[in-house]
Amino acid sequence: MMDARCPQTYAEVLDTLFENYPELCACEAEVRAAASTVLGSFRSGGKLLVCGNGGSAADSEHTVGELMKSFRFKRPVDPAFADAYREANGAEAPSWLEGALPAISLVSQTALSTAFGNDEAAVGVFAQQVYGYGEAGDVLLAISTSGNSANVVEAAKVARAKGVKVVSLTGSRESALTGLSDVCVRVPRDEVFRIQELHLPVYHALCAAVEAEIFGGAGE
């Protein structure tokens, strides 16, 4: 749901994150680099692929939900699309159609994941989708509290081979994802549910900052 208050700019969103969660100052450089990486991909026509297990699977879907529809800003459709819709359908585009930041949750493909896990290898359910969806310039957001979740690690390996940048959210410890990521945000906690408590404000800030930069002036 959009914030009823005046939304912030890209820089203000990130600054506010560290003001509200001083603990995250330990990984401030990485959070800012993650936001820049995701923003750069969207601006160049790329998309975001997101994966994780358990609570991190829910975080994956939550992230996609904030990107594919209005979050804090009203998002008009692209004027060129509005013209194309009018020409194709003889009417204006519906008012409920919104600008989208293309993102795919790899945890949501139930039939594909169960079939691949049963027929091939469960460890590859995310990696197969990165291979199928991923293109150079895209970003994989890999969420793993341990940083060692096997199916997430395999997805990161395929992403690197495809030219897909890897941004990961983990806990404080060194992990397999540390070395596989272009940016690894290691939030300064060690217990699973406490790590997840900090993952949420981080990915909310990533979504809000990118949206502010791309759609912040759209209604002016």
Rank of each mutant, 00 (worst) to 15 (best):
M1T: 07
M1S: 12
Q8S: 08
Y10C: 01
A11G: 01
E12H: 09
F18S: 08
Y21C: 10
A26N: 05
T37W: 08
V38L: 15
V38D: 03
V38A: 05
G40A: 14
G45S: 11
L49V: 00
V50M: 09
G55S: 14
S60N: 06
S60H: 07
E61W: 09
V64F: 01
G65M: 04
P76Y: 13
P79F: 03
Y85A: 05
A103C: 03
L106P: 00
L106T: 06
A111R: 06
S113E: 09
A115Q: 13
F116Y: 15
F116V: 15
G117K: 00
G117Y: 03
V123E: 15
Y131C: 10
Y131E: 15
L141C: 02
L141I: 04
A142N: 05
T145G: 12
S146A: 12
S149L: 07
A156I: 06
R160M: 12
K162D: 01
V164N: 04
V167P: 03
V167A: 05
V167H: 08
S172N: 10
E174T: 13
A176I: 07
L177Q: 04
G179R: 00
D182Y: 00
V185W: 05
R186M: 14
V187T: 13
P188G: 02
E191N: 06
F193Q: 11
Q196L: 03
L198S: 08
P201Q: 11
P201G: 14
Y203P: 01
A205V: 09
V210W: 02
V210S: 04
E211M: 13
G216R: 11
G219H: 02
